[in-house]
């Protein structure tokens, strides 16, 4: 292969048509309220671990909808339950995280 000093860059674009959302669907079957997330971000805003570990429940749910691997984020969760207290849609976020861990296992 000829070295030109540069190569094709990888596109950062998300392709919805190619996104594998089976994990998300599985999660929704266990935690149907996951679907009602509206991305308000209050879970991430209040998250104890988030600022230090990169955990964001909003991004976890969105990532699953886009077919991304969210395990690295999930590892940062301390299961304190603060997000459950603030979610305006009343999503049982703690249970959602536990269900997700179960799916990944």
């Amino acid at each position: 292969m000829t070295d030109f000093g540069f190569t094709l860059s990888r596109s950062s674009a998300l392709d919805l048509s190619k996104a594998d959302t089976r994990l998300y669907e599985k999660l929704c079957s266990l935690s149907p309220d996951a679907r009602t997330c509206m991305g308000c971000g209050s879970c991430s805003a209040t998250c104890t671990a988030g600022p230090y570990s990169g955990m964001s429940l909003r991004k976890v749910i969105l990532g699953l909808q886009r077919g991304q691997d969210v395990r690295p984020m999930l590892k940062g969760c301390m299961l304190c339950g603060k997000c459950t207290m603030v979610c305006p849609r009343g999503i049982n976020t703690r249970q959602l995280i536990l269900n997700l861990c179960r799916i990944y296992d």
Partner: peptide, 12 residues
Amino acid sequence: EDTLSGKPLRAQ
């Protein structure tokens, strides 16, 4: 743009 992901998005 999927502004909540901060990424461009395509769909068929």
